[in-house]
Every structure is written in C-alpha cells, then in structure tokens.
Amino acid sequence: MNLTIIRRLVQVTAFIVFVYGIGLGGYYLADKFSSSLPALACAYDMYTADHCALISLQHQMDHRAAPVLASGGSLIDAFLPTLITMGTFALLLVILSKAFCGWICPLGFFQEVMNIIGQKLGFKQTESLSRKTVKKTRPIKWLMVIFLLFIFPLLTGFGLTGHEFGDPFCRICPSRILTTLATGDPKELVVDTSTTGYFIFSVIATFLFGLMMSIGLMVRQPFCRICPMLALNTLFKKIGLVRLVKDAKPRCVKCGLCAKACPMDIHEIHTDMDNKDVIYPDCTLCGRCVEFCPDKDVLKLKYAFLPVLSADPAYFKKRKKAQTQWEKITFFNTPKKGDK
C-alpha cells in the first residue's frame, strides 16, 4: 500500500468524522470538539463534529477585540481570546504541522476528488501551473488572512463596516457550501438578498464554489493555493513534528520529478539545493514529492526523528507504475490486460 492510498483513507475518515461527526459521536459533539480542536470543519454544517478556527478568529476580532479597544481596554484584554485560539491552533500544528491541509482538510480532499473525476472524465490535465501563475497566486492567501480574517472583522467591530464584514472569509469560503451540501442541506447554496453586502458576498461564494469545481477538474488544489488556513499553518511550520527533509544530490538539478508530482506546484522543492528543511509556505505535506523521487534518501518525510517515508528507487518504480495504471482508467476507457 503506497502513501497516497494511506493518505486517502485518512482523508475519507477525516471527512466522515468532521462533516458527519454527530452521527458518530452524538448531536452535541461539536460543543466538546470545538472547545479543544479549533482548526477543522465548517461551523455552518449542522452535522459537523468541529468548528474551523477561522470563524473563531473573525468573531474574536468583531465581537471582542474591536469593542474592547473602542472602550479603551488593554491590548491583552482585547486579544487574549485570539491568543488562546492561536495557541490551540499552534498545539494542533505541533502534532500535525501543515499535514492538516494535505491529510485532513475536507475541502482539500474534495478538490482532490474533483481532480480525479476530471481525469476520469478525460479532461485535459494541467500537470503544473507556470512559475509566473504560481508566483502571482501566492500572495493572495496572505491578503486573505490580513483583510478577511483580521482587518474587515475589526472594522465591523468598530462599527465602520456592515455586519456582513464581521466574518467575510466564511461568507465566501467554499467549505461552507461543500460541507452543508454534503449533509443534504442546501441552505448555504443561496443568493442572499437581505442587503447589498450579503448579496455580493453570496454571489461571490456560490460563483467561487462553481469556479473551484470546474478548475479543480483540470488543476490540482485550486482553492488551497489561496486558502488562509495554509497561510496560518505556515506561521507555525517551524514547530511542527512532521518534517520534510531534502538531502540534495547533483542529479536533482536535471530531475525535477518531485516538483512535477507536487499538487501545489512548488518548484523550489526541485531547485533548492541548499536547504535541508523544504517545507515551503505552500506545502501541504502530502508526501507526493517523496513518493516520486527516484533517488535513494534524497527526500524524507519524518515525524519528529522517526522516518515515515524515504525516497527509494524501488518504491518509486512501483509507485510510478501504479500511477500510470491508475491514470489509464477512465470512465470511457478501462485498461486491458497486458497494458503497461
């Protein structure tokens, strides 16, 4: 069993737990989970077993930080809940590091499923986005963090923007539509006509969801590239126990299979010849680069000091063969016996 299959099993389990959690742990499970694990599924999903940290952060800006600052309160009083949330977030990151995105996130998993569907339907796959496109896209997630998680909610708390700006990221987050639809509830797949702001946000959200679905048929992880969760994970990447280590060899210069395998198109994983720690801000620790590295021990996925997977020529051959076989299977064309 290769790493990708193990990862898929973890993703399916995580999806079931976090999207349909109450079916497993009781109706009020979220009350307990959301107090202890603040970085998972969407709060708008009535069946979820947890609440995403991003909604907490936005509400803390709107309902806590801004009112306390406006009434002349101290900074510590204003931002203490935020620090606590970030603290528990950091704790989660120690255990999972950025692997949350690649192994657990329900929206990340959905995008992988969309890409598989696209490939099976015969859509032309974009193996890698150009460096120029990747470079242009990368700052968006940081802008999302700054404006949608902090600035707009703070302005709302000060009474300078409408209430719809109190949790602007949640207003446009595709996970909100995905997880509610997954439970058979269409209440988030709506256009809201109550105010101009809500109307605009709801149109953006539903449009973005459709856009993500269709682009996801041909490009790997389109929304992950701009997701603020990825940016927040990056803030704590140094403290995570999951490590991606590179021991560059001269052959790396010509190879580049690792960058080709990377769903986030991190070209640096190929070009960086100096750094040992190769967890880049966009990395989701999916481990595909390690799987598709043909040279012994060049790339390693580790949990603390324990090796999880090391690049290995034999593994690479098997994995490559399995991938080729898998890609040959489409809805319109199944491989025949003897196909290589």
């Binding site: 256009v191 809201d192 006509t193 539903t206 449009f207 856009l211 679905m213 269709s214 048929l217």
Partner: peptide
C-alpha cells in the same frame, strides 16, 4: 430572503467560467 435557484445560477456561472 435567500434564493436557492439564485445560488444554483451563480454556481453554474462560476462552473462555466472555470471551464
């Protein structure tokens, strides 16, 4: 004040735009 058909329309537009 919320319309599901409006939501489906916006989603469809997004989907087509992506294609």
């Amino acid at each position: 004040w919320q319309s599901n058909s409006g939501g489906i329309l916006a989603l469809s537009l997004g989907f087509i735009s992506g294609l």
